[in-house]
Design a protein around this nucleic acid. Structure first.
Length: 669
DNA sequence: TTAGGGTTAG
């Protein structure tokens, strides 16, 4: 090969990735130069251009080499699978290489069913095409993705009859498939059958043990393995993360001789999933400090952390980064982005992301958008979106229906919710699960029909769990039904006796009803059992730093600043005629103290801090871990009017947007 | 042929 050859190749390569160029310069080039271009195509558009150029040079795309290369490159290019299918269907006599290429392409494009179907077709239609190790390896991957033990065993038997089960690739595929299906003994047998072993095979077995939740055995194995590579370390890391052992995961992470983007994505995602958003941010910063480029998975992890922390500004910066890095077309990234925007209080941005994916929306995209709208009280819009989804030909799944019921319950659409619930069986052919029943209890409970909710639970065909009863208990506490609350509390306690949240709910019911003695006895019971109330906290993002406030915590400079501002604000509100509502206070204490205790709820501190620190007119966004209390709700409305501000509060169950003295939840929460 | 990511009731 001459330097000249490389120059031409380089030139052609530049044209191929620069999609706008028509590649006309290449028409006179040698056909084989053009063929080599296929390998460099990064997008479907450039691939199609090269293909048409190939045809112009007189090379037949069914020619054996051209056809194979074309197919091979099509499945590798993003969204190229349909194009590949078309090419494949127009090939008169595909050989085993082409079958295998398609089987692999289909697995990697998340169509494992089609992949298995093609394997079967290959065996039926062409007597000359006995599957080889690649066919088995790729099809086993499909069975593993589907967790289809039956399909996997069938493949194992077929491989056995031609003696391929001892092959390195096939054996590894079998180990992985059995591991994925949760059959650790079968995985071990398949491993023992193998004639030769390499690090990949060992890693597959290690993963199988990790999947089975046997972290101890896996660790033992990891230490005694004859080979070990970066993937083995990553498997250990992921195993600890999945088991929730974040301390051990951190140890492994520090101990690793090398780290790649999988290692980083694993820790970042692991922290985010465990709710440790600060740690997730810290790892992300460290990744950047080490000069690494974040990939789409680690970005997903940080976005998840943003969603939990309500870090809108940070999410917005990440959005820009995603666009610049070229991840903007990836559906899963957009799904997380959409969800994050919605959870950070900005439905409009979420909708922009949603609309940008015209024909690539997955069921998750639709569902996330529905939940996003519902969280902000746009129940009707969420329902309209559901119908739109159906019209576009996507069938709802169980989670879509949960979201739909969630939308109804948060918008007070009781009748519509019941209709959808009935439709589940009749129209969508789904058996409602305990989660769906939970939504229905919430639907009735939120609307104040607590008795109806109780009857609903008593006649449901499934055994109600603690969550179901707790949902109703929460509704009783909002609507002040003491009698029912006591009855329901008993049922919860039978199932989960030591949950402090339930005691708090009951004590709140007594507080609202003014039954201070009963309330005190609940508190005493809690103290004697060593239970503690989950402390309420609220956080706010100022200049990309998240400040968290906890009521009654020790005063530092930041809290002091917030208190000072809050005092000033309360004086102004009182001058306008406001008096605190004391129903939500938890202690039976002197009036003045009660007032103080309400005044100091963490969300008020956070708002005060926001008013002190943020530019005038900027929306104040607050995230709270518990549900907002009645008094804080009123105060937020008043502040939004007095200071001409928009305040967005995300509490445990939904969003409240306060503007000009009223709230988007229409006082329904 | 092995490892990492997304939606849901409280």
């Amino acid at each position: 090969m001459t330097p000249y050859y490389y120059c031409v190749l380089q030139l052609l390569y530049e044209y191929a990735v620069g999609v706008e160029e028509p590649l006309s310069v290449m028409n006179s080039s040698q056909p084989f130069f053009i063929l080599s271009l296929l390998n460099h195509c990064k997008t479907l558009i450039s691939l199609k251009q090269v293909h048409s150029t190939v045809l112009k040079t007189g090379l037949d795309s069914h020619h054996s080499i051209t056809g194979k290369l074309l197919l091979h490159c099509s499945v590798l290019v993003p969204d190229g699978i349909d194009y590949a299918c078309r090419l494949f269907r127009h090939t008169p006599e595909p050989d085993i290489f082409m079958y295998n290429t398609m089987i692999r392409g289909l697995v990697e494009s998340d169509r494992p069913n089609n992949s298995i179907a093609l394997f079967v077709e290959m065996r039926k239609n062409s007597v000359y095409h006995v599957p080889d190790s690649f066919s088995f390896a790729f099809t086993l991957k499909a069975a593993a993705n589907l967790r289809s033990l039956r399909g996997g065993i069938q493949l194992h038997c077929q491989a056995l009859t031609i003696g391929l089960n001892t092959h390195l690739f096939v054996g590894t595929g079998l180990v992985s498939m059995y591991g994925e299906c949760g059959c650790i003994d079968f995985a071990w047998n398949a491993f023992e059958e193998m004639r030769e072993l390499n690090v990949v095979a060992w890693n597959a077995l290690l993963t199988a043990y990790m999947r089975a939740g046997d972290v101890k055995v896996a660790r033992q194995m990891f230490l005694s393995m004859p080979f070990r590579d970066l993937t083995s370390w990553n498997v250990m890391l992921a195993g600890h993360v999945k088991a929730g052992e974040l301390e051990l995961a951190r140890e492994v992470f520090l101990e690793m001789p090398d780290k790649d983007d999988v290692s980083w994505s694993t820790v970042i995602g692991g922290c985010a999933h465990s709710g440790l958003f600060d740690e997730a941010f810290e790892y992300f910063r460290e990744l950047r400090r080490e000069g690494m480029r974040a990939n789409e998975v680690s970005l997903t992890g940080v976005l998840l952390a943003c969603a939990q922390a309500g870090a809108f500004d940070f999410a917005n910066i990440l959005h820009g980064f995603i666009e610049k890095a070229g991840f903007g077309w990836i559906v899963s990234v957009n799904n997380v982005l959409l969800d994050t925007y919605a959870k950070c209080g900005n439905v409009r941005m979420a909708q922009l992301v949603f609309e940008r994916l015209p024909d690539k929306k997955s069921i998750i995209t639709w569902t996330s958008m529905m939940v996003g709208l519902a969280m902000h009280g746009h129940g009707e819009e969420a329902i309209n979106l559901f119908h739109e989804m159906e019209e576009s030909g996507i069938k709802p799944d169980e989670i879509t229906l949960i979201s739909l019921l969630y939308a109804c319950s948060h918008a007070g659409l009781v009748e519509q919710g019941c209709e959808f619930f009935d439709k589940m069986k009749q129209v969508y052919n789904m058996e409602p699960s305990i989660e769906h029943y939970g939504c229905m209890v919430d639907l009735y409970g939120r609307a104040g029909e607590v008795q109806k909710a109780y009857e609903f639970i008593c006649q449901m065909p499934l055994q109600p769990n603690a969550i179901i009863w707790r949902t109703l208990l929460g509704a009783c506490s909002i609507h002040g039904d003491v009698k029912l609350a006591e009855k329901v509390k008993e049922r919860v306690s039978e199932l989960e006796p030591s949950d402090s949240g339930d005691h708090i709910l009951l004590s709140n019911v007594y507080a609202v009803a003014g039954k201070w003695k009963d309330k005190a006895s609940v508190r005493r019971a809690m103290t004697s059992q060593g239970m503690k109330k989950t402390p309420g906290w609220s956080s706010i993002e100022v200049d990309r730093i998240i400040y968290t406030f906890v009521a009654g915590a020790k005063h530092d400079e930041i809290t002091e600043e917030a208190y000072e501002k809050l005092k000033e604000i309360m004086l102004r509100l009182r001058a306008g005629g406001y008096t605190p509502e004391l129903g939500s206070v938890l202690h039976d204490i002197e009036l003045e103290e009660k007032e103080n205790s309400v005044t100091m709820h963490s969300e008020k501190l956070a708002v005060a801090f926001g008013i002190a620190r943020l530019c005038k007119g900027k929306t104040i966004r607050i995230v709270k871990n518990l549900r907002i209390c009645r008094d804080c709700h009123t105060v937020m409305k008043l502040i939004s009017q007095a200071y001409n501000l928009e305040i967005v509060v995300r509490d445990r169950s939904r969003f409240h947007t306060y503007k000009s003295g009223s709230c988007s939840c229409r006082d329904y929460w």
